[in-house]
Structures are given as structure tokens and as C-alpha cells.
Write a protein that binds this DNA or RNA. Structure first.
Length: 806
DNA sequence: TGCCCCACCTTTTTT
DNA sequence: AGGTGGGGCA
């Protein structure tokens, strides 16, 4: 996080004569890639298809700029989508140019903005110790305000309010601007304006930014203070943006601000919040910085949160004279996989045609499988992983993708039973766990005492007998005295609360003060690198937080203690990597780093993740599960403009992650909301040319019950009886193509409105005869509770179960 | 104030 | 189905 603060040098940077110092950087690049590396001009758009080596091109381009002495490291700003991508890029540039990589800014939009805002916060009413609200924090705040303003009476749910605020900010429309254009004759709209305004005031009061503000306020800063903007325009001469198709309007505007020409005359020497800026006495007017963007509109999957695909499609208009380079040769996947991807994505009508190709050959066919249930589907995946593993493929080379996080459950259950090591990427995040948020709130209370939310969060954790009534008393006292909530804790005796409460409050105040002394030593002293970890331990121990967990009889609290230990370990690790890192640096990193970023220890385990998380990754083998209507494409996308296309791109992203083997799997029934429902094969399956898929079990097979047995049933057999002599991969290939020529079968097994009542006798293809105990549910979701003579009690979905009435 | 039970809502994706 | 939050009661 620290910056080498290289003095800014502008002007002639001479080129070495003779052979280019970057010759070796061009080795092994195809002509298009080479052009993308060597082109020099104000604007360059690299349209990079999946797997076309864009990271290579980007890193080599940066290295080339450095090697040729066309730029100092400090003049380079490279923006990536995730911290992980940033780390990888830095590493690869370092491999190419060694120490010269230091001083470059390679980071996400959010991290870059935090660095700028910390330096400039005082320019506009914040202090540099501001904290960052993640979506959970924002949600909590919105929720409180919705309640306070009784906005729910107008049909405004916290989730809706939060999303509207976020969308608005992504369009650079702040609370004031929104209020100006709002339709104030609509009472619900008026209410929203009120809440939006209150939300923003609360953030300001807490000296905090939410995710969207990090970008939006930086843009505001640049526009309101051109002199500040000029500092960064002079500094960053080469700006590179990865995943440009996923930028939203605010991010677009930020880049636009940074790539304006510097028109103002250089002002007097100017120090920007710690960054020493040396400006030559006669700073010349400067050309705009050169801008390189890389993107693929076919991989735009974040429109739902404001990403604007037009940023890439209209790049040439925004930057006249821009050069466009197309990378279509794919170095990742087999031709079969690419053909499937090309075929599916070509169904999106509003795109420029682009066809990925490779010279590595056709490769294996795509394998299709249809399970009876999601457990059955998961069992197939587990069995295949087992077979591939025995064939020599490492677990780390295999990944399972799904559309929604909830789908991971069934997979996990089966994987645990099959003893397959796996790791869930993303998912329920470590940093969203209650105990971690508590611990971070303690740290925040120390780092940014203005953050009332943080103090409120921890004031009664562990239980100190400080309830709502007392909290409000403190809040009122703070307001009356004109001090912060945090400072009010120091005057417990003046609050007019009972002696027991006074003691509790004073103790908490003392703990916070002690930790503060450890982590934020008074001026002059420098906190040792371990200060954060030590301070955190002080907070957790002396507040009684750990003791309370230890004393608890809730078995989950054991795990919570371990999580806290892990957080302390993270703090130590942070200290190792950032010897000068402060408490604020730590909190910043934690707020901006997602779990998806720590993919390092995924070796040796199968990776499970959502399709969104999968973007930018690649695996030898990919299982794309739940390829069903209403799931992929997701039901909710149907109603949104551009939704179905975006889902198709999501499918495309998933398919193109696979290097050699691709599995497309689905289930005929899926339990959702605790209810079983019938699933239909996804339309995307129809869009894959039939000859590319080898169906081990097609939807047609399942519906006609071709004598195969449910794997879920296999799985329930005792271990010894498992048919190890019949591993799935060695089974005769299905000839089901004619039964399911890649068309959604017209004859799904359908019992129609079969009437069943308790007492009826039925016959099931697998379970034999039984008697109906009860029927629950309605319509197509009616479920029969059946006691089978041999197989015991089962619940069956009447509409599709292979049963007949006797 | 704290605990327990019930109702409800979830499940789209994330920096 | 499972988790969370709110409300009511001790």
C-alpha cells in the first residue's frame, strides 16, 4: 500500500538507440498481440476474446514502456477488476522488468480511489482516517433509516432503497442531484429522497464512504478541484484498464477525468497530502495520458450492477483516433469447446461478430448429463472427478461452476461423502461473518471514532447490559454536548444511568483507549508492524469478547473463536507484507479484498464457485452445473431488459473457462425454498450444436427411464457394495442423441393431474409397491408421501415420478 | 434486559 | 429448509 513517491519527471525520455530493448518481449506473440504491445498513441482498444492472452499483452505492453524508458513506473496506472488480478499482473510485470515494477499503481478502481481519497480527503470535509462501508454496512445503515423514516409504509424495502441508491451513485447522481430531478408529487419518491439524503448525511457524519462513493467522490473531487486533478493527470501518463466492459458510468467518468489534457498552468509547488509533488518551474501543458483499455463485450456480466457495455462499444467515438486491435486466437480451449461457445454467443443479436479459434485441435467432446435431482447431478460430478483424478488430473485443475451460491450445498454434501477435497471460492465470506464484523467494528471504533455505527455495533457485544434504552441515552447526551458518540462513553458518570451501567461503559471506554494507545501511538512514535495484531488481541481479550464465546455452550462458538484467531493471523500476515501498514491500511485492505482473491491455496482441491467468480480463471476441466431454465438463464433475468443476453454471456464465460474438458450437467427436479419443483433443460443447451455433446444421460433418458438407476440411490449403498467395477466414464456411451437431439423434449414424463389420495396403492419403477399416506402441495407441485413395502417411506413429486396407480 | 419462539424471507450475480 | 429478525414474555 505504500508508495515509492517517485518524483514526477516530465518531458523527453530518450529512447535507446539500436535494437529495441523490448525485442524479447515480442517473442512468441502473434501479430495482433504484437501490435497491441507496440502501438503508441493516445487511445488503444484491445478487443480480447476469452483466452486470447490479454493479460500477457497487457503485461508485455507495460514492460515494453518501462524497458524503452518511455515511462517511469510511477507514471503507470493499471486498473484491474479484482485484487487478485492486480496481484497477478504485478507479479508478471515484475518477472519481466524486475525491480522497475515498484512505484506503479496496479490496483482495482476501488483501491486506487481510496489512495487518492486518503490523500485528498481534507479538501472536502472528510479526514484521512475515513472508513469504508461494505455492502453489509450500507445495508445496516439503510435499514435503520428506512425504519426511522417509516419508509416501508411506502413500499420501500431496505434492499430496494440500497439498490436504487447504488444505481444512482453509479450514474454519478448524488442525493442532491437526485432530489432536484425527482418527481416530488409521488409520496414514495419523496420518501426515497428523504432516506437517500439521510443516508448520505450519516455517511458524512461517520466519516465514511460506501463502495460507490469511493469512485463517485473521486470523480467529484477531480471536477470540483481541477488543481488536484491536474496532479494526477501529470503523474499518470499511461493508464491501462482491464475488463473495460464491466466499468460503470462513474468508473468511465473517472478514467475520462484522468485522460483530459492538462490545461492549467502549473501552480506553485504543491504537496498533496503526503505525496511529494515536484513540478518543474515551467511545467509544460501536457497531452492527455495515453489510455489502453482491454475488454470483451461478450464477457460483460455485470450490467445488473451498473456496468455499461457502451463504454466499450462506443470507445472509438469517445476517443477519436483510437486504434482497435482484435485478438481472436484462443490459446486455452479445444476447438469443440470454442465451437460451443461461439454457437451459443452468436444468439445474442446485438453484438459484433467475433469468432474464437484455436490450432490445438478438436479435443474431447463435451459431456452432458442429466440427473434426477440435484443430488444425483452432484453424484455424477463427484464420480467423474474421481475418475479423472485416477487418470492423473490434479484436483486443482478441476472446477465446478453454478449460477447461484445456494447450489453449492448439494455439491458439498456429496463431495464430503465422496472424500473429494474442495474449496468454495467466494460464497459466505469470511469477512461477512458476525464475529469478524464485530472484531472489525472494534478496530474501526479505534481507527475512526466518528463512525457511530461501529461503536453502536460493539457496545453490547459481548453482553454488557447496555440495551437500546441506554444507547439512546448516550446518543442524546452526545448530541446535547456536541460531542461524538464515542467520546460520550468517556463521561459515563454524566449520563445519568445506573452504577452498573456506568461501570460497563467505563470499562469499554478503557479498552478502546488502551487499544488506541497500542495501535495509534501519539505523534512522533511509530507503531511497530505488529501493532494491529496486538491491538486486536487487546480488544478481543479485554472486552471479554473471547471469554464470552469460550463460556458459551453453543457449539458454533468454537468455530467463531477459530475465525477470530484467523483474523489475528491475517493481521500478522498483513504486518509481514506491509511493515509500514497502519491500522487504516489494514481496514482498507480488508474492506476491499474479497475471498475470491485468495485463490492461492486452492491447489490440491477442486474449486467450487459461481459463474461470476469464475471470470478470468481457467481450468483443465470444468463442470457447469444446473444448466436449466429459470436457473441459467435465471428466472429473475427474464423481466429485465438485456437480462437474457447477459445470462447467455454468463454461460459463455463459464464454457470458455475450460481448457480440455467441459461437462454440462442439469437435474430434472430441483429443491428450492424447501420445495421440489420440475426443472427444464436450459435453452442454451439447444444452442450448442448437437454433435458437440456426448450425452451420458440426456433429459430424454431420464424421462423415459431407460433402466438406469439414480446415482443418488447408488450413493446410499454401503461403501463395500459400490460398483467400483463400473466407473461412470467406462459405461457404454449413451445413444440417446436421437432421444434428445439437443431439443427440449416434448415428452417430459408427465403424470398430468393424476389424482392420489391417502390410502391409494401405487407402483413405482424403482421402489415397487406402496401405499399413499398423504398428499401435500398443490398443482404441479403436489407431493405424495408414500410408504413402500420394501423401500420404506419416500416423498414423490406426483407430476413426474415414475409411478402408476394400482 | 435477555431469551425464546414464531414468522418470514430467502436465492442472482459483487467491488 | 434454514437462518434471521422481531416481538412478546419472564
Amino acid at each position: 500500500m505504500t508508495d515509492a513517491s517517485t518524483p514526477l519527471v516530465v518531458g523527453d525520455v530518450s529512447r535507446a538507440a539500436g535494437s529495441r530493448p523490448d525485442d524479447d518481449l515480442l517473442q512468441g506473440l502473434n501479430p495482433q498481440q504484437r501490435e497491441a504491445v507496440v502501438y503508441r498513441g493516445n487511445a488503444l482498444l484491445i478487443v480480447a476474446g476469452a483466452g486470447s492472452g490479454k493479460t500477457r499483452v497487457l503485461t508485455h505492453r507495460i514492460a515494453s514502456l518501462l524497458r524503452n524508458k518511455e515511462a517511469w513506473p510511477s507514471q503507470i496506472l493499471a486498473i484491474t477488476f479484482t485484487n487478485k488480478a492486480a496481484g497477478e499482473m504485478r507479479e508478471r510485470v515484475e518477472q519481466l522488468v524486475g525491480q522497475h515494477a515498484q512505484g506503479m499503481w496496479i490496483s482495482t478502481f476501488h483501491s486506487a480511489c481510496v489512495r487518492i481519497l486518503r490523500r485528498e480527503a481534507e479538501q472536502f470535509g472528510f479526514t484521512k482516517s475515513f472508513t469504508i462501508y461494505d455492502s453489509g454496512d450500507s445495508r445496516a445503515l439503510v435499514k435503520r433509516l428506512v425504519k426511522e423514516y417509516e419508509a416501508d409504509a411506502f413500499g420501500l424495502t431496505p434492499a430496494a432503497v440500497q439498490s436504487r441508491i447504488s444505481k444512482s451513485k453509479n450514474e454519478l447522481v448524488d442525493a442532491e442531484a437526485y432530489a432536484r430531478d425527482a418527481n416530488m408529487s409521488d409520496p414514495a419518491e419523496r420518501k426515497f429522497v428523504e432516506v437517500f439524503g439521510a443516508y448520505q448525511r450519516a455517511l458524512q457524519k461517520a466519516n465514511a464512504f460506501d463502495f460507490d462513493d469511493l469512485i463517485g467522490q473521486t470523480v467529484y473531487l477531480f471536477r470540483a478541484f481541477p488543481r488536484v486533478a491536474d496532479v494526477y493527470r501529470r503523474r499518470f501518463r499511461h493508464i491501462l484498464v482491464d475488463e473495460y466492459q464491466d466499468t460503470n458510468h462513474a468508473q468511465y467518468a473517472l478514467i475520462h477525468e484522468l485522460t483530459r489534457p492538462v490545461v492549467g498552468k502549473a501552480a506553485e509547488p504543491y504537496s498533496a497530502g503526503g505525496m511529494m509533488i515536484f513540478e518543474p518551474e515551467h511545467a509544460p501543458e501536457l497531452e492527455p495520458a495515453s489510455l489502453t483499455v482491454v475488454g470483451d463485450s461478450d464477457q460483460s456480466i455485470y450490467a445488473f450492477r451498473g456496468a455499461d457495455i457502451r463504454n466499450i462499444t462506443e470507445f472509438e467515438r469517445d476517443y477519436p483516433g483510437a486504434k482497435v486491435v482484435l485478438l481472436e486466437q484462443n490459446y486455452r480451449s479445444t476447438q469443440n469447446i470454442l465451437s460451443a461457445a461461439n454457437a451459443v454467443i452468436s444468439h445474442n443479436f446485438d453484438r459484433k461478430d467475433k469468432r474464437l479459434w484455436t490450432d490445438v485441435g478438436e479435443g474431447e467432446k463435451i459431456v452432458g448429463y442429466t440427473g434426477y435431482s440435484q443430488h444425483d447431478e452432484a453424484q455424477f460430478v463427484a464420480d467423474e472427478i474421481d475418475v479423472l483424478r485416477r487418470g492423473g488430473m490434479a484436483y486443482g485443475q478441476m472446477a465446478v461452476f453454478y449460477r447461484t451460491n445456494s447450489q453449492s450445498r448439494a455439491l458439498e454434501e456429496i463431495f464430503i461423502r465422496a472424500a473429494i477435497p474442495y474449496k468454495i471460492m467466494g460464497g459466505t465470506r469470511f469477512y461477512e461473518r458476525a464475529e469478524i464484523k464485530d472484531a472489525l467494528a472494534y478496530l474501526t471504533a479505534v481507527a475512526n471514532p466518528a463512525d457511530e455505527m461501529a461503536v453502536r455495533r460493539i457496545i453490547n457485544r459481548p453482553k454488557r447490559g447496555i440495551g437500546d434504552v441506554t444507547v439512546e441515552t448516550i446518543a442524546r447526551y452526545a448530541a446535547d454536548e456536541g460531542i461524538t458518540f464515542r467520546d460520550a462513553l468517556a463521561n459515563a458518570s454524566a449520563l445519568g444511568v445506573g452504577p452498573k451501567l456506568q461501570t460497563s461503559i467505563t470499562r469499554l471506554d478503557a479498552v478502546l483507549a488502551e487499544a488506541s494507545a497500542v495501535m495509534l501511538p501519539s505523534s512522533g512514535e511509530i507503531a511497530p508492524p505488529t501493532a494491529v495484531a496486538e491491538g486486536l488481541s487487546v480488544l478481543l481479550d479485554k472486552s471479554g469478547y473471547r471469554d464470552a464465546l469460550r463460556a458459551s455452550r453453543d457449539p458454533q462458538d468454537e468455530a467463531r473463536l477459530e475465525n477470530l484467531d484467523e483474523l489475528v493471523a491475517v493481521a500478522r500476515e498483513f504486518a509481514r507484507n506491509n511493515p509500514d501498514g497502519t491500522l487504516l491500511d489494514f481496514l482498507t485492505e480488508v474492506a476491499l479484498v474479497s475471498d475470491a482473491d485468495d485463490l492461492e491455496d486452492a491447489s490440491g482441491t477442486v474449486s467450487l464457485m459461481t459463474l461470476h467468480t469464475a471470470k478470468g480463471l481457467e481450468f483443465e476441466t470444468v463442470f457447469l452445473t444446473g444448466v436449466e431454465e429459470d436457473l441459467l438463464p435465471h428466472r429473475i433475468s427474464a423481466g429485465e431488459p438485456g437480462g437474457p443476453s447477459e445470462e447467455r454471456r454468463l454461460f459463455y464465460v463459464g464454457v470458455t473457462r475450460a481448457r480440455q474438458r467441459l461437462y454440462l450437467t442439469l437435474a430434472m427436479t430441483r429443491a428450492q425454498f424447501g420445495e421440489v419443483s420440475v426443472a427444464m433443460p436450459s435453452r442454451f443447451l439447444q444452442e450448442v450444436p448437437a454433435e458437440l455433446i456426448d450425452w451420458r444421460q440426456s433429459p430424454g433418458d431420464v424421462n423415459s427411464r431407460g433402466g438406469t438407476q439414480s446415482r443418488a440411490l447408488n450413493a446410499r449403498r454401503p461403501w463395500g457394495q459400490r460398483r467400483t467395477d463400473d466407473p461412470p466414464a467406462l459405461r457404454p456411451k449413451s445413444t440417446a442423441m436421437e432421444k434428445f437431439p439437443n431439443r427440449i423434449p416434448a415428452k417430459v414424463r408427465d403424470n398430468g393431474d393424476m389424482e392420489l389420495a391417502s390410502g391409494d396403492r401405487i407402483r413405482h419403477e424403482d421402489f415397487g409397491d406402496g401405499i399413499v399416506d398423504a398428499v401435500t402441495g398443490e398443482g404441479p407441485k403436489r407431493v405424495a408421501h408414500v410408504r413402500f413395502d420394501k423401500a420404506g417411506a419416500k416423498k414423490l413429486l406426483i407430476k413426474i415420478a415414475p409411478i402408476e396407480k394400482l
